[in-house]
Design a protein around this nucleic acid. Structure first.
Lengths: 217, 217
DNA sequence: CGGCAATTTGAAGGCGCTCAAAAGTAGTGG
DNA sequence: CCACTACTTTTGAGCGCCTTCAAATTGCCG
């Protein structure tokens, strides 16, 4: 996959805008956590599947590639969220740290104990997210996609007016099925309409939440 | 939703091309099955969630609507397949019979017994399908989408050369995020290139499987 | 045969993509 | 502290794929 590395996601990235523990769970000592610098691979497609993963701080992108390098990010995972659900013995996607990220790895070799009672609901939430994203990718235009994305991130960051984006425009584009130029243009358009403000590159202030809500219809 | 009914999916449809029990499990007496005619609703968005469903024969579409009527079908379910996984107490999608369809309803009020051992893997397969479909909707063009669709249906119907489509072009379009005209044009293009033959409206013969595989890259 | 719906085909237009270049932002080292 | 570099983001211009609108054709069933 060397042909990709010069186009996107160089291993060393800026790790600003990655506030720690945005939504992290109460600090129980639990299993050990591992640190991943920005751009580091957490697991690869085809790799033997271990267990589940929980984001302690930072952010993760889950994606798949086409042979010619096109990339689709199927999900972002922020602090506190669980990921790594896979059918079968190997991973079907790549997982990378977007910024400096702490990951707690959980062994689930046998689905026993009350773990099952937690795994299934978490997997179903993941399924619901994926299915809802299908509607965005299949039937919404550029501005609707970006609005849906902003609302989603806002919800997951605690429903504040100000949201911090750990990911680049390229990541957002590959998540929304758009080019980075289109993502940028839509941000600009929303700013010109007074719907959002952009205090810095990676932070967004939602000025008119209702206008965003109206867009996703 | 009356405004939709004149545009698509009239309640009475042709129920040809719906071979029974394409992939149905061996006939154990089990729970009772219910019959749904073409177009009948199996459950609705917002409806209280019962349990899981298994297709005995026929086909089902799972979809969601936008306020203006745009529809995204997130999945088709053929004979033998299980569906109805939902997070929370109510359904988040609509489920309809595409053609004359038999559904076996399974109560799963408490996740007990060895049912849990079957539910999670089935849910994970459903998740994998949805995630793979995200790549199709987000990053593939019209001909690649149709090729991916044909390969998928072919696999699920037993990997024969000849496949029978229970769904209309409108359903295929709403599944692939394309207009019905584009779906039709792509079918024509594939036929002209000798990749497929169209013995009848709802059946497809795959003449050059490799050509289809090459398209999904 | 006649009527209705689904599908196909054609023509024109628009949204988002590609290509290209400018502007902005870090990070580095003098 | 500032110049220099590398990268990300923004903005512009032109184009292509897919959509929309429209009409012809096909298929199905009474």
């Amino acid at each position: 996959m060397a042909f990709l590395e010069e186009k996107r996601a160089p291993f060393v990235q800026h790790d600003a805008y990655c506030p720690e523990l945005v939504h992290a769970p109460p600090g129980k000592s639990g299993p050990p956590a591992t640190f991943f610098p920005a751009g580091a691979e957490i697991y690869a497609q085809g790799e033997a599947k271990g267990g589940l993963y929980q984001v302690e701080f930072g952010a993760v992108r889950i994606y798949r590639l086409l042979a010619d390098g096109r990339r689709q990010i199927s999900a972002f995972h922020l602090g506190g969220e669980i990921f790594g659900f896979q059918d079968g013995a190997t991973h079907h996607f790549f997982a990378e740290a977007i910024c400096a990220t702490g990951i707690r790895m959980m062994r689930t070799t046998s689905f026993d104990g009350d773990l099952t009672g937690e795994v299934l609901p978490a997997a179903l939430r993941c399924l619901l997210r994926a299915q809802e994203h299908l509607l965005v990718l299949g039937r919404q235009n550029a501005i609707e996609r970006v609005a849906a994305f902003l609302i989603d991130i806002c919800d997951r960051q605690g429903d504040l007016r100000q949201i911090e984006l750990p990911m680049s425009r390229a990541d957002i584009g590959d998540y929304l099925g758009l080019s980075i130029e289109t993502v940028s243009r839509v941000f600009s358009r929303l700013r010109q309409k007074g719907v959002i403000r952009l205090p810095s590159l990676r932070s967004v202030e939602i000025v008119k939440p209702q206008a965003l809500e109206d867009l996703v219809a």
